[in-house]
Nucleic acid binder design. Structure first.
Length: 554
RNA sequence: GCCCCCGUAGCUCAAUUGGAUAGAGCGGCGGACUUCGGAUCCGCUGGUUGGGGGUUCGAGUCCCCCCGGGGGUACCA
């Protein structure tokens, strides 16, 4: 249950009641703000509504707050409502209700915390979609973790989610990749074949060329060069995709669909969408190229769709691709996760939505800032083409999937991220992820210690210790956390919540003996075992949302 | 030049999108429990939120100017 939403409804009704009673004339549609106060002495929830209304009603905010508070009916989850400070309404959760949530969690299991703001709407999260021309970088890893965690949160919020990887298997970068690879293949067979001017310089291309030479022999050298480049490129593409897939699986990411850019051309969709735009009058031709007339939609400039050479731009592919997402596959909402180096592409995409007659709000683009790698206190520059790469795989091999996922997740997408390789690889035990996992392992240990003690008839209403209450307050926050992650498309909130939950548990553990051997403690032992079980369920769920394992032992 | 993101404790970052006395982790210093895991816990240390104006009951958050970092500004992706 989303208490916040319940409170919003309650306060709104109370406001209407107070307005009727006091004769206030309110402007229509007042949004009732409900927030989490900074300090616990201000209760569990608060609303600054009265302060917002003060000037409009020309009344002291405290008076308004009191009038509203007087109209709020008794509900099971609230202990009391107070008016504090300049005119805040403060809400305090009822201990009976909080303790009762333990039974709720035990009954619902890992479904606890799920909400239904999605109402089964179909949403697609497209993420990573790195060019299959090289291994995934740490930056791709950030993309992967943001996308996958968002997808998990959306599913928990009641959306039907599809994860998709868009394969850029057409276009100029692919061409360059094939040419480079052909050169490396030929070189591996002793030919003097130069790598293209702007080709991919990494060692991995040398290795890949040699691998193909070993597997395929000299047969491609006997083909006309153009055909050979095609053929070697195809093999390379397959190998590269397998490699990418493998690297993503190493951090627990699997896709529902891999979508080929090339398929947009093969089945004629590209032509069809271009024709559609032409009919709608969004196509102009000038300087030998075909343009998308985005200036007509408020854009600062037009964008090329088909170059003078006849080759489509990737923007053109993207239009057809998104047409496919919305019209052919019928997604209600599409979320694309892109690095900051693609931010300039966003306004074009929004213009495209309008041109296709779609509400731009149905396309969300999450832009995350780039990752700066540091080693020995100085920056490591990355480039696939020049070849100096710190791959995602190298990092995962050194520090493990759990730590990598948590570290890449625990920052707002808007935040530039410094990744200190020395810190990550040498001092990984300082990573807060272990703190969270430790809480889970510790719980498992408690149950091992409790053995087969039957606590099923434990009375959760015995739970009233301050540490127990604090833990309960954290447990019931989960639905709100899921909501905010989806509302803001900001999955880092899960990481913070996980730490706070683990902290509440560790404090409880220190101050409250769970399994006691004294006979007089029998009932509280059973009640606490229920609380601990509930905590285990929520911890495991939250770790699962982050794609981090929940170990029984560490 | 123009557009986007950022600037918060020694370091890495939060701050419920305008709310109450700006919080965590790490580092540093000092402590804790003779039964459930010390990868834990507690305390201390630490701030003119880059600077300056403004908007209002109220600003880290919004507006303007300046400083600094990153990204974009291609018939690359």
């Amino acid at each position: 249950m989303l208490i916040k939403a319940e409170l919003e409804k309650l306060v709104k009704k109370a406001l209407e009641g107070a307005a009727a009673k006091e004769g206030w004339s309110l402007s229509k549609e007042i949004k009732v703000p409900i927030e989490r106060p900074r300090e616990s002495r201000w209760g569990d929830f608060a609303s600054p509504l009265a302060m917002q209304l003060a000037s409009q009603l020309r009344m002291p905010p405290r008076k308004i707050a009191e009038a509203i508070a007087g109209q709020i009916p008794d509900v099971d989850f609230l202990e009391k409502i107070t008016v504090e400070g300049p005119g805040y309404l403060n809400f305090i959760l009822a201990p009976v209700w909080l303790a009762g949530q333990v039974e709720e969690i035990l009954a619902q299991g890992e479904a606890y915390g799920n909400i239904d703001i999605g109402r089964g709407k179909r949403v697609q999260v497209e993420f990573v979609s790195a060019n299959p021309t090289g291994p995934l970088t740490v930056g791709s890893g950030r993309n992967a973790v943001i996308g996958d965690t968002l997808a998990n949160a959306l599913a928990a919020a009641g959306y039907e989610v599809q994860r998709e990887y868009y394969i850029n298997d057409a276009g100029s970068q692919m061409r360059l990749f094939a040419e480079t690879l052909y050169a490396r293949y030929a070189q591996a067979l002793g030919r003097d074949e130069p790598v293209p001017e702007k080709g991919y310089r990494g060692q991995y291309m040398v290795d890949l060329g040699r691998e193909i030479a070993e597997e395929e022999g000299e047969r491609f050298l006997r083909l006309p060069k153009e055909e050979a480049i095609q053929a070697v490129g195809e093999i390379g593409l397959r190998k590269m995709l397998a490699w990418i897939k493998d690297d993503l699986e190493a951090i627990g990411i699997r896709y529902d669909n891999w979508f080929s850019e090339r398929s947009l051309y093969q089945d004629g969709l590209f032509e069809k969408v271009l024709e559609l735009l032409r009919k709608k009058g969004f196509i102009t031709e000038k300087e030998g190229a075909v343009w998308f007339a985005s200036t007509e939609l408020g854009e600062s400039k037009d964008n090329v769709l088909i170059r003078r050479t006849g080759e489509p731009t990737y923007f053109a592919s993207d239009i057809a691709y998104h047409y496919d997402k919305f019209f052919r596959r019928g997604f209600d909402w599409v979320i694309d996760v892109w690095g900051a180096d693609h931010q300039g592409h966003v306004p074009r995409m929004k213009a495209m939505m309008k041109a296709l007659g779609l509400d731009p709000a149905r396309l969300s683009i999450v832009i995350y800032q780039l990752v700066t790698l540091k080693r020995g206190g100085k920056e490591v520059r990355l480039s696939k083409r020049t070849g100096e790469i710190i791959t995602l795989r190298e990092l995962v091999d050194e520090v493990g999937s759990d730590a990598v996922r948590f570290f890449l997740l625990a920052r707002s997408p808007d935040s530039h991220m410094d990744f200190d390789l020395d810190l990550a690889t040498q001092r990984s035990s300082e990573n807060p992820v272990y703190y969270i996992q430790y809480a889970h392992a510790r719980i498992c240990s408690i149950f091992r210690h409790a053995g087969d003690l039957d606590y099923s008839d434990g009375d959760v209403q015995l739970l009233r210790h301050p540490r127990e209450m604090e833990l309960l307050r954290q447990l019931v926050r989960l639905p709100e956390v899921i909501e905010i992650v989806v509302a803001q498309l900001a999955p880092h909130h899960i990481a913070y919540y996980a730490q706070e939950l683990a902290n509440a548990f560790h404090l409880f553990y220190r101050d409250c003996r769970v399994v006691s051997s004294y006979p007089e403690d029998r009932e509280i032992t059973k009640a606490r075992l229920k609380l601990v079980k509930a905590t285990q369920i929520i911890l495991a769920k939250v770790l699962g949302l982050m794609g981090v394992s929940a170990p029984e032992r560490m």
